[in-house]
Design a binder for these strands. Sequence first.
DNA 1: TATTTACCTACTGTGTCAATAGGTTTATAT
DNA 2: ATATAAACCTATTGACACAGTAGGTAAATA
Lengths: 131, 131
Amino acid sequence: MISTKGRYALRVMIDLAENDNGTPIPLKDIAKRQDISKKYLEIIVKDLVHGNLVSGVSGKGGGYRLSKKPEEISVGEILELTEGTLAGVACLQTDKNSCPRAAKCKTLPLWTEYDNMVHDFFYGKKLSDLY
Amino acid sequence: MISTKGRYALRVMIDLAENDNGTPIPLKDIAKRQDISKKYLEIIVKDLVHGNLVSGVSGKGGGYRLSKKPEEISVGEILELTEGTLAGVACLQTDKNSCPRAAKCKTLPLWTEYDNMVHDFFYGKKLSDLY
DNA sequence: TATTTACCTACTGTGTCAATAGGTTTATAT
DNA sequence: ATATAAACCTATTGACACAGTAGGTAAATA
């Protein structure tokens, strides 16, 4: 299940894209527009900065701006970054080493197909498609 | 994320379908074949019984059997029963009353599309497709 | 009547989620 | 220079779900 973190992250990204006027956008403004506590947004934006999707500018007059054009940012990137993974099933998380039953598992092909579908869906959607 | 409960439930259902020989199949056998504790399986099978996907027969010689033919049971039914919901996003869970931002929410259409895709995927797969 | 099975209620440790709290650093505007 | 406004950082917390265990009772057959 996609958590608030990923969902809020997407809203932040859209907000940044929609309100882009050249100058950095302070978190305070986003928090107010999106009705999300600024404190919580700090955590989320930190992930986005680490993933190079946005860059922050400190000091008065500072704020955040997108690092790439909205057409070049996929929803999948945003979610994978903030959710940690897009994998819908634990068996398929890359860090978990593969299950000993994998070879004979009757359900693994289903989960793999599911995972590919979800991946393609979210990586096919660009930020620019959402506003 | 689909939890062990849903994943195990699916394996139980496949096991019941594959080993169906007319007589009920005791949980002990399923637990051994699937390498899952019988105690934990009890919880899972209870859900399946409540949802009328399997029926239990008490007493010596008892066990469980499928209530319908494998071609008539969808993976979606199984997962929705054991997971509680198939909704990948909290906004779309039926019990939660809709979010006040819904009307102006830029992300809601995305989540709805995602949800429909997932729903169609899992309801399109039948138990008989998996073994 | 002993045995085998389903069925029931309760409990628990672990971890994640969602969020808050209180600071320090950085850089601009005045 | 200095006040101000912003990002940035570390830690903490309450609530809840997940994954599983424990110990029993009821039902039905061999």
